[in-house]
Simulated scan of single mutants.
Amino acid sequence: MNRQWVLARRPVGQVGLGDFARTDAEIPVPDLLKGEILVRNRILGFDPAQRGWMDQGAGYMAPMALGEPVRGSACAEVIASQNPAYPVGSFVRGLFGWQDYAVVAKAGETAPISVPEGVQPEEALGVLGAASLTAWAGIKTVGRVKSGDCVLVSGAGGAVGSMVVQIARLNGARVIGIAGGAKKCRWLTQDYGTDAAIDYRTENVSARLAELAPEGIDLFFDNVGGDILEAAIAHMALHGRIVLCGSISSYNDEQPAPGPRNLSRMISYRLQMQGFILLDHLDQVPQASAELRNWLSAGQIRYRTDIQHGFDAIPATFLRLFTGANQGKQLLTIDT
């Protein structure tokens, strides 16, 4: 059987276990069309953006369908193939969903990404996966980081943020990270090389920014939104750039929270603010992947993965993203 976790109902406010249902379906018959492959998922990755895909309404991706496997990233083994680019026994990654098996590489769909020889599945979804590629595109292409910049990163202890701070540092920037809790702040300064860290749970973010960036922030990479975005706007330097990658502070809100109250500063300080998603920068994936692999081989970047285990633990593992329980990129290995 093909075990599946499906979206049972659209979450209202805080996502919970009751929004998902466990079901079994038949394994897709490997009577594949030309170009298609049948894969077996081995490890799943979890991202806050999945919460937004569960809502009904317009977005950069179509909403998940009720009763269908929850959309999510996976690294999978090819077990049948009608596509010479994906031989049996090779590994690929893509949005294969919360299930054991999937038919992918269908006509009109985004092609799965081959996992290079020597790259482990947890690396393919972690340090070399979509979160790191997002960090690369956001800080280099959208943010245009340069040597000497004062860079601020919110959600800096997470999968995207922890890579952003390191890429900014490798490009000669002075980096300040914001994270929740003393442990994650220690990671930022001791492991990821930030010049300073702010614990938003125990410190006044605005007051600390005044101390740490008296001449203003040149580039703010935001994964959080809400009050932290407002505080950052208040401390931006003239002609500063703001990159909007995520807004996890509001993903579970039943009603939209009020926006930053100081947007007039965007005018007086001639600030630029731009949202982005990785899908707009897929042409840069080869370059980004090569640079990330070089940095990893040279020991210039560090990373953490939080690996849970077992098919039945999938929904609870996803919820860890919204309590801060995850200790690095959240992954789960599927038992066989």
Rank of each mutant, 00 (worst) to 15 (best):
G18F: 03
Q120A: 15
V142G: 06
P286H: 06
L125N: 04
G143K: 00
S114G: 10
P63K: 01
G72R: 02
I139V: 15
E123V: 00
V164G: 08
S289D: 15
I228L: 15
P84D: 12
V153L: 06
R42Q: 15
G310D: 08
V142A: 10
R265N: 08
F276I: 03
A130Y: 13
G108F: 07
P286A: 02
A237H: 05
R265W: 09
A25Q: 11
A21D: 12
G328Y: 04
E230I: 00
G310L: 08
V164A: 13
S249K: 04
E109K: 01
I307T: 05
M236L: 13
V104D: 12
P63Q: 02
T23V: 15
R93D: 09
M64I: 07
A105F: 09
E109N: 03
K34W: 09
A80N: 06
A232T: 05
P256I: 00
K183A: 15
H235M: 09
A207L: 10
D100K: 01
L332D: 08
L170P: 02
K106I: 03
D227E: 15
V92N: 12
S297A: 15
K140L: 15
V243E: 11
A102H: 04
P30E: 08
A232C: 07
Q330W: 02
G97M: 04
D306A: 05
Q50C: 12
P69V: 00
G72L: 02
Q166D: 06
S247W: 14
M163Y: 05
A85C: 03
Y269W: 14
S73W: 14
A21T: 02
V70A: 11
S264Q: 15
G18T: 02
H281L: 09
D222W: 07
G324P: 08
L133D: 01
L296I: 00
F20K: 03
L319T: 04
S206E: 13
P256E: 06
V103E: 12
G275S: 11
A298D: 13
D47Y: 11
L209Q: 04
L331Q: 08
N294E: 15
A231C: 13
D47G: 02
Y200F: 13
P121S: 10
Q274Y: 09
W136L: 02
V103T: 11
V175F: 11
A135C: 10
A8D: 13
